[in-house]
Write a protein that binds this DNA or RNA. Structure first.
Lengths: 198, 198
DNA sequence: TTGGCGACATACGGCGCGTATGTCAATTCG
DNA sequence: CGAATTGACATACGCGCCGTATGTCGCCAA
C-alpha cells in the first residue's frame, strides 16, 4: 500500500466517523450518544476515534466545523443572489433561520454545542457565520446604509435573534406555518439598523 | 414531631438541595456535576434527591424554575421604574441582558438548560420571562406605539437577541467594557419595532 | 400496640468514558 | 536485505456516575 493510499484511508476513516457522529449526535444528543455504538455503526472502534479526534469533545468540534462550513456557504450563496446589499443581508439572515430548521443543526450547533464547548463566539476557527455577518454589517455601515452601530455587537444580536427564532420555529407544532411569522418579525426588527425607515 | 414540623423539614431539605445544585451546576456545569458530591455538600445523600426531584433532570428543572422566577421579578421591577411604556420595555430587556451576566444564569439557563431540557419555549411553567415580554409587546402594539407585528415572534427574537448578547458580553475579556456596546446595539435594533423612528 | 406510610440512607448493577497496552502493516535505515 | 521504528487502529482495564432496589427509622391511625 502506498503512502497516498494510506492518506486516503485516513480521510475515509475520518469521514465515516464524522458521518456517524453527525447522525448519532443529531438523533440522541451529544450526552446520550455512545462512542461505542457510534464507532460500531461506522464499522470501527473507539480506538480510531480517539486516534483521530482526541476525545469526545474533539469529535464534536470537528462535526461543528463541518456544519458551520456548510451553513456559511449556503448563506453566502443566498446573499449573493439578492438584488441590493441590504436585501442580501436580509436574505443571508433568513437563510440562517431556515438552515437552523434542520434537526442536525438544531441539536448539534444550537443546543449541545454551546453547552459542551462554551459560548460560540469563543470558538477558535468556527462560527464563520458570525464573521461573515459582522463583515456584511460593517460594509453596509461604511456605505452609509446603516446607522453607525458596533458591527460585532449588531452581528451577535442578529445571529442570536435568528437562531433563537429558528429554535422556536422548529419546535413548533407546525413549523412551516410559524416560519413566516418569525421571518416577518425578523425583517421588522432588523430594520432598526437602517438609517431611514424602509 | 408535629406534621407541620415535618413539612418544614421537607422544605428545608429541598432548599438545601436547590442551593447546592445551583452552586454545583453553575461551577462545573450540569454534566460534570456529580449528584454524590452535590448532595454531600448539602449534608444529605442521593436518596433525598431522588425522593424530592425524581432524577437529575428534575433537579435541573427545579433550579431553572427558581432562577426564572427571580429573573422575571427583577425585570418587572426594572420595567415599572421607567417613565414611559416603551422605555419600560427597553429597561426590561436591558435587565435581562444584565441579569444574564451572572455565571449562574449563564451556565444553567442559557447553556445547559436548553441542551438538557430542549428548547426553552417548550418548557411548561417556566420562561415567565418570555410571557411577560410577549404581553408587554402586545400592550405596546395595541396602544399604537409599535408596528403591528406578531407579538410572540417579536418576543422570541428580542429575548434571543438579549440573551445571546449577554452570553457574548459575559464571555468577553472585559465584560464591563463590552456591555454598553451590546446595549447600544440592542436599543438600535429594537427601535425597528417602533412605528415612527425615535 | 401494631401495621402502614413517608422521608430519607445504603447497596447494587450497568454503562460509558478515557487510557494503557497490544497488533500489524508500511517505511526507514544500517 | 533484515531489524527497528512509526503510524493507524483494536482490545483490555479501571474508574466514576446514574438510576433503582432495598433497608431503616420515626410518625400516624386504628
Amino acid at each position: 500500500m502506498t503512502v497516498g493510499q494510506r492518506a486516503r484511508m485516513m480521510k475515509e476513516t475520518r469521514a465515516k466517523l464524522l458521518r456517524a457522529a453527525r447522525a448519532a449526535f443529531a438523533e440522541k444528543g451529544y450526552a446520550a450518544a455512545s462512542m461505542d455504538e457510534l464507532t460500531a455503526a461506522a464499522g470501527l472502534t473507539r480506538g480510531a476515534l480517539y486516534h483521530n479526534f482526541g476525545d469526545k469533545k474533539g469529535l464534536l468540534r470537528a462535526v461543528i466545523a463541518q456544519l458551520d462550513a456548510e451553513m456559511v456557504a449556503k448563506a453566502r450563496a443566498a446573499r449573493d443572489r439578492a438584488a441590493t446589499p441590504w436585501l442580501g443581508f436580509l436574505e443571508e439572515c433568513v437563510a440562517y433561520i431556515e438552515l437552523a430548521l434542520e434537526p442536525e443543526i438544531q441539536r448539534i450547533m444550537l443546543l449541545d454545542g454551546p453547552a459542551v464547548l462554551g459560548d460560540p463566539s469563543q470558538w477558535p476557527e468556527q462560527t464563520a457565520c458570525l464573521r461573515t455577518t459582522t463583515e456584511t454589517i460593517q460594509t453596509l455601515i461604511e456605505s452609509g446604509l446603516l446607522r453607525p452601530v458596533d458591527a460585532e455587537a449588531a452581528a451577535r444580536l442578529i445571529n442570536g435573534a435568528a437562531l433563537d427564532a429558528a429554535l422556536w420555529v422548529a419546535a413548533a407544532d407546525e413549523p412551516r406555518a410559524v416560519l413566516p411569522r418569525a421571518v416577518d418579525a425578523f425583517r421588522c426588527l432588523s430594520s432598526g439598523l437602517l438609517k431611514t425607515d424602509g
